[in-house]
């Protein structure tokens, strides 16, 4: 239950934070901020939109993770689930942060170096999904829940 609470907390906070980021981006649109909207700033706009989308998505994944463990309490002790939880938490930080930082200092048509956080974040999210899929598949084979 402790892990369920952790992911529930993270999920809702992530959702709140990155929905707020989305509102901020809409405000930049509304105020026609050149540093965000000019064509020369296209990589920044792209990066920050991706940060907003990935942050929100990871928040939803946290909630899904918590809901899965809540609906299937035995799964929390299954092999790989603890690792999946850690991977998800790490991915939830790296992915949106990488996109955010990548948009802060852009280099012509390329994002800044912060974007280097994104590939490990993506791999960690993929690992979390695979670990959970394997745990769920094994549980179903065993006839759980």
């Amino acid at each position: 239950m402790q892990r369920v609470r952790l992911h529930l907390r993270l999920g809702w906070w992530w959702l709140a934070l990155f929905v707020a980021v989305g509102v901020g981006l809409e405000a930049l649109h509304g105020m026609k901020v050149g540093a965000y909207l000019d064509l020369s700033q296209a990589p920044r706009r792209h990066m920050w939109t991706l940060a907003h989308a990935h942050g929100t998505l990871v928040g939803l994944v946290h909630l899904g993770f918590a809901a899965t463990l809540h609906a299937w309490p035995g799964l929390a002790e299954a092999s790989g689930v603890r690792l999946a939880s850690r991977c998800l938490i790490a991915a939830g930080v790296l992915l949106p942060l990488g996109f955010l930082l990548g948009g802060v200092w852009i280099l012509g048509g390329d994002p800044g170096l912060g974007v280097l956080l994104v590939p490990p974040g993506g791999l960690l999210l993929l690992a979390a999904a695979l670990l959970m899929a394997r745990a769920v598949a094994r549980g179903v084979e065993r006839g759980d829940p």
Partner: peptide
């Protein structure tokens, strides 16, 4: 345009 969006736009 993909690498030089500002220059392309100007």
């Amino acid at each position: 345009v993909a690498c030089h969006p500002g220059e392309h736009a100007s």
